[in-house]
């Protein structure tokens, strides 16, 4: 219901930020997010940053998944191939 995209803050002036998504830039309001800083990754919805991405949580999630995938991939025969 709400398209919101991870973007990096590259500039802040007053409570407006310039965000960057793969080289596309736009102004975005920081009125809904306390203490955002340049370099932060935020989730932007309809021109407002609504959340700062928790890098720690992101790393944890991914490393757990990657471990599981490596285990599955590293043990041939241990994992039946997904049937179609």
């Amino acid at each position: 219901m709400c398209l919101a995209i991870p973007s990096r803050i590259v500039e802040i002036k007053d409570r407006m930020a310039v965000i960057d998504v793969d080289g596309v830039r736009r102004e975005c309001s920081l009125l809904l997010l306390e203490d955002a800083a340049v370099g932060d990754w935020v989730i932007v919805h309809a021109g407002f940053a609504i959340s700062r991405i928790d890098e720690e949580a992101a790393r944890e999630t991914l490393s757990l998944l990657r471990e599981a995938a490596a285990l599955a991939g590293g043990a041939p025969g241990g994992e039946p191939p997904a049937g179609e």
Binding site: M1, C2, S29, H45, F48, I50
Partner: peptide, 8 residues
Amino acid sequence: GFETTAPT
């Protein structure tokens, strides 16, 4: 919109 959009 829902709670995501309403604050904006």
